[in-house]
Structures are given as structure tokens and as C-alpha cells.
Nucleic acid binder design. Structure first.
Lengths: 222, 222
DNA sequence: CGACTTTTGTTCCATTCGGTCAAAAATTCG
DNA sequence: CGAATTTTTGACCGAATGGAACAAAAGTCG
């Protein structure tokens, strides 16, 4: 069983056996024509598109429009449409987790930090801001079940968020801020669930105040 | 401004003004070839398809496969793909609301009834059962913002559920079952939010027990 | 400089898409 | 029966799709 690395890359040669030689872009050597675009910017633009319209409703033409790249470049750099989706998901997850960590360390008081997190979720969920909820959450709803690669990213992201929340809850419990006696992991799942629910509500309701209200209600139960 | 009813129906005649004469199927007269399919069954099959794969990932060919009808029949009976989606959404909403009402009247104790509701949401959200969550909620995430007709159905459905919950909470408060002092409508929105969040979790996690745990946690805060 | 390597921009292609149409079939009404 | 009406059927349409191929361009390296 030879190497069957799929993407991204350009097919250089087909063995008679059916196996392929693929050039991996952006590796080691500096020889060859250099990239003329900012990879992060392109990834961001593609993400915005997928985020706003979903995977199936986004065409390659849409992607070339928002990224400014042509099909060939997109294909060569990231692989096919689905591989590009995975890349944007990983990109989002990284950025997102950093932001969550920021929120959860924003105050001396762990519980107050969780409040910051929840309120930001509510505000971002509202249609008044952009009303698109969480990119990963949306993609999960569109692609799952049925897409193992997306599933892996989604599951890992969710666990990362829940672990960050659980850790913060542990700190709160340690200093006696927590009145709720449920385990930190249970409470973390609960908080994540409320966030996800607010994202859904934000899709069809632009009432930010009601979402913030729900966030505070959830916070008050801890 | 003449009648501009759009669908479903077959265009019989175009006025020179641009207006159309449309025959409304399944009305009054009994003349003509009778339907050879069960409308409700077809609606159900189409709903299953949309529910499992979403709107954009479902092709007309998929729909003809699962319903057994040909394109022409589908078009004649329900209109185009989008109109069929709306029909399945309305169908689902009707069935769903009846089931919710059942849950909320299942016990003498209003609070216990809400527990029944929440636990069923958790169980249905889990991938162990079907893991597809709520059809309307999924469609909202895929189509909104940007689809006013879907938005109207989603909003109405959500309000109906929230009103049913709020009414049940009122009854609970009246007999002193409620310890939480927040308003019934706030608590109803909270419960709905937790449900929606569990649906999202169920997409990538099959752990029914953890979902039930969250349901009970939410219930205990009332 | 000239061989080599990678990106870029364009073109092409087979397939699939949602939707339309006209004729055949099935029924009621006169 | 025959006219009228509706549904069914299957062929058909133009447009758009995702992806592949390829020559030109733009660099590096010996």
C-alpha cells in the first residue's frame, strides 16, 4: 500500500499502477514561482463565504470571486472545494479557540469571565451583528452526519471549548464561586449547549436583548 | 393588482398583461385523472430527504427517487423545489407542535411535563436515535438569513413552541412549582435554547446520556 | 544564461442541475 | 361514446457545476 496522500497538491505523474506523484506546495524548497497571494487572507475570504452561505450553496465561481484567485491557483494551493472547506474550518477553530481563551481569562473572577464569554456568544449570535452564529456549528449541521473529516474537526473543536470551560469552572469552584454542585464537565457541556442554542435563535430573531437575557439566565444557574 | 398566487399549480394561460391563470390542484371539481399517490406520504418522504441532507444537497432526482414520482408530477402537485421545501416545513411544524402539546400535557405536574419534553428532545437529538435534530431548526441554519418565506415559518414555529412552554410554566408558577423567579417567557426561551443546543450537539456526538444529563440540568434550574 | 520548478490564467469537458413541455393515460360529465 | 379536464410520463432544455489540463509567466539555482 503506497502513499495515498490525497490533497492538496498537483498531480505530476501517474504510475501505471494508478498511484500518483503529487507535488506538495509551500514546502522546503524555495525554487519556482512564488505565491502572489496572502494565504491567510484567501483562507479568510473563503471562510466568510462558506460561513455566510454554507458549503453546498457556495460555488467555485463564488470562491474565485471572493478570493480573487483563479480556479487553477485555488486548486493548486488548497485542493478541491471540500479540502478548502476543511482548511477554513481548521483556520476558524484556531482563531476561535484563542478568542475563547481570551474571554475565559479576561477577569480575575472565573465566573465573571464565563459571563463575558456567554454575552459575547449572545451578541455574535444576534442578527444585529451578523447573525451567522458559529461557523463550525453551522457546518456541522450542514454536513453531519455523513462527513467524517468534518466530524473530526467539529468534535475536536467542541471538546476544546468544553475543556476550556470546564477548566474555568474548576477554578471558580476552587475559590468557592460556584454554587451549582454539578460536575464541571457537565456544566461546561451545559454552557456550550446554551451557546449553540443561541446561535440557532439568532438566525431568525434579531433581538439581541432577549439573547443576552438568556445568557444571563444561564450564567445565574452556575 | 391582480391575484399573483404563485404556487402550486399549473399555468394554463398567460394574459397579455403578464398575469397568469393557474389551475389549483385538488380543489372543488372531481373531473380529470385522479391522483395516484398519497399526498401525505409523498410529503413525508420529501421531508425525510430534506431533513437528512438539507435543501441544497438534495437534488430533484433525489426527490423523485424517494417519492417515486416523476419531476412533472412533483412540479404539478407542489410546485418547484423550494415550494416543496416550504410544504414539508409546514407539515413538520404541524406534526411537531401536536407532539409538543402532548408532552406538555402528559403529566398532572406542569414541571414534570416540561421534563418529559426536554428528555425527548435530548433523546431525539442523539445520534443514537437518528441524530438529525429538529427539521425546522436545521433548515433555519441552512437557509437563514436570506429566505423570508422560510424565516416566517421558522419564526412562527419557534414562537408557538415558546408560547406552549410559557403557558406550561405559568401553570407551574400558579401552583407554586416554580422556584425560578424569571418571567415565564424568559424561561421558555431558555428551554427552547437548550433544546436547540442539544440538537447541534447530537450531530457530532452520539452520547445520549450526556444529552439527557444536560436536559435534567436545565430542568433543575427552573 | 539556461535548466528547472511552481504559480497563474485560461480553456475545456462531462455531468448534473432545476425546470419545461407535449403527448399519453385516466377519469368525469354531457 | 366523445368532449373536457387533470395527472402521469419521459424526453428534453439551457445553464451552471466541479474539476482537469495546459501553456504562459515568474521566479530560483547551478
Amino acid at each position: 500500500m503506497a502513499c495515498d496522500i490525497l490533497l492538496p497538491g498537483r498531480i505530476l505523474y501517474f504510475f501505471p499502477t494508478g498511484h500518483k506523484v503529487i507535488s506538495m506546495p509551500h514546502t522546503a524548497t524555495k525554487v519556482g514561482r512564488p505565491r502572489q497571494f496572502d494565504e491567510a487572507a484567501v483562507l479568510g475570504a473563503a471562510m466568510e463565504q462558506f460561513w455566510a452561505h454554507g458549503f453546498h450553496a457556495t460555488s467555485l465561481t463564488d470562491l474565485t470571486t471572493v478570493t480573487g484567485l483563479h480556479k487553477g491557483s485555488l486548486y493548486g494551493a488548497f485542493g478541491d472545494k471540500h479540502a478548502l472547506l476543511l482548511a477554513t474550518l481548521r483556520h476558524y477553530s484556531k482563531v476561535r479557540r484563542a478568542k475563547v481563551d481570551d474571554d475565559l481569562a479576561s477577569h480575575e473572577s472565573p465566573l465573571e469571565s464565563i459571563g463575558v464569554y456567554l454575552k459575547r456568544m449572545a451578541r455574535e449570535a444576534s442578527a444585529q451583528s451578523h447573525g451567522r452564529g458559529c461557523f463550525i456549528s453551522n457546518t456541522a449541521l450542514e454536513m453531519l452526519p455523513g462527513d467524517p473529516q468534518v466530524a473530526a474537526i467539529v468534535t475536536e473543536h467542541r471538546h476544546a471549548i468544553q475543556n476550556a470551560l470546564a477548566g474555568t469552572l474548576d477554578r471558580a469552584r476552587a475559590i468557592g464561586e460556584l454554587k451549582n454542585t454539578h460536575s464541571s464537565s457537565e456544566l461546561a457541556r451545559f454552557i456550550y449547549t446554551v451557546s449553540a442554542g443561541m446561535w440557532e435563535r439568532g438566525r431568525s430573531s434579531s433581538d439581541e436583548e432577549q439573547l443576552l437575557n438568556t445568557a444571563e439566565l444561564a450564567l445565574s444557574t452556575l
